[in-house]
């Protein structure tokens, strides 16, 4: 490919495609006369996880849990305060690692708002061809690639290529955004609430498309959503966030069938039942998620947790593996027999 030297796979299938190590991002809130920092939003507060090659990792959580900040950190639209991203064994943004510009060819993002993420003054084809052009792909080649991708996301290139974003429906625009994300031939695509704004019937079409493209291009997805049903449908592994921290991570079936963290359980039982004869009769937890500006100390969920004890208010629980499944981790004192929680060891 002209102007683009491909970096193939480096570490083999066992090496995580992306390793996230101790990532922190706090936002100061400034105010007052001298623009002093009056408060700090602890949007992402120390997260570690791996994204395996070829998988779809779902990230769920409620508003303020930091999932969107995480998405922006992963593509480095935001710089972390602390922590490291390791892309296929190469540390991102360091001297002997991978430069940001290089990393951006491999990691792309699809945003929630299909309209705001397309430049209204550029034609669809130009929007898709922009990335390749930036990376030195010639004009003709970039346009050919745009046409090819349009076809692959199900939009006839001759009909849609010369169009402008406002002429398309929401579903069609999201297809364009997906094509745009794929134009640099990335290996990892971060989908930040990418289907959340779509109508159900269109959402299903786009989910099918995402599955097809994943198989065709051998992609790895990080799929961020608040919709537990969709995450269950598309993910291989699921990561649950609460107030800037990971509370649980594991294979999708274990998370949905045997959740270990009380928050995950609450989140799952808060889903509407879809069965008119078995409607939900009791809310699993009460109250709103606390504000990430002043998160509670210790386990951040303790203010809403029905099992909270003293230890939960003071000590931060570590992510620990389940004795039943080594790849199923939860951050709860009850999962750790030595934590001093009265119910420790009862719920795993």
């Amino acid at each position: 490919m002209s102007g683009q030297a491909e970096i193939g796979d480096i570490g083999g299938p066992a090496q995580p495609l992306l390793a996230v190590r101790g990532l922190y991002r706090h936002f100061p809130i400034r105010g007052g006369l001298f623009n002093r920092t009056t408060a700090v939003v602890q949007a992402v507060d120390g997260i570690d996880f791996d994204v395996h090659k070829g998988e779809t990792l779902g990230i769920v959580g409620e508003s303020g849990c930091g999932k969107s900040t995480t998405a922006r950190l992963l593509v480095r639209l935001l710089d972390p305060d602390r922590g490291e991203l390791v892309y296929d064994g190469l540390s991102v943004g360091t001297q002997d690692g991978l430069s940001l510009r290089e990393m951006r060819r491999h990691v792309q993002m699809v945003f929630q708002d299909s309209f705001a993420s397309l430049n209204p003054r550029l034609s669809i084809a130009d929007s898709i061809a922009f990335g390749p052009r930036v990376h030195g792909v010639g004009d003709g080649e970039a346009m050919a690639r745009a046409r090819d991708l349009l076809a692959r996301v199900g939009l006839a290139p001759d009909t849609f290529g010369p169009r402008y974003p406002h002429e398309l429906s929401g579903g069609q625009r999201q297809r364009v955004n997906i094509a745009r994300a794929l134009a640099l031939r990335p290996r990892l695509v971060i989908l930040d609430e990418a289907v959340s704004a779509l109508d159900k019937s269109v959402e299903a079409q786009v989910l099918n498309l995402l599955q097809d493209l994943k198989a065709e291009f051998g992609l790895t997805y990080v799929f961020i959503s608040h919709d537990l049903n969709v995450v269950r449908y598309i993910s291989d592994r699921v990561l649950v966030m609460y107030l800037g921290r990971i509370v649980e991570i594991g294979p999708v079936d274990r998370i949905y069938e045997a959740p270990r963290h009380p928050y995950t359980r609450a989140l799952l039982s808060a889903m509407p039942s879809m069965d008119p004869d078995r409607r939900t009769s009791e809310a699993p937890i009460s109250g709103d998620p606390p504000n990430p500006i002043n998160p509670p100390p210790g386990c951040r969920f303790h203010t809403r947790c029905p099992f909270a004890s003293e230890i939960c208010q003071t000590r931060v629980p570590e992510l620990a593996a389940s004795p039943l499944a080594g790849d199923h981790l939860a951050a709860c004192h009850m999962a750790d027999p030595s934590s001093g929680h009265p119910q420790a060891g009862t719920a795993v």
């Binding site: 792309q108 430049n119 550029l122 640099l184």
Partner: peptide, 22 residues
């Protein structure tokens, strides 16, 4: 602050290109 500018940044475009095109 619109997403398409972020998308352009995520494509690796520099400030000058983003200003010119977007």
């Amino acid at each position: 602050n619109l997403d398409f500018v972020d998308a352009a940044r995520a494509s690796g475009a520099g400030a000058f290109t983003i200003i010119r095109v977007h």
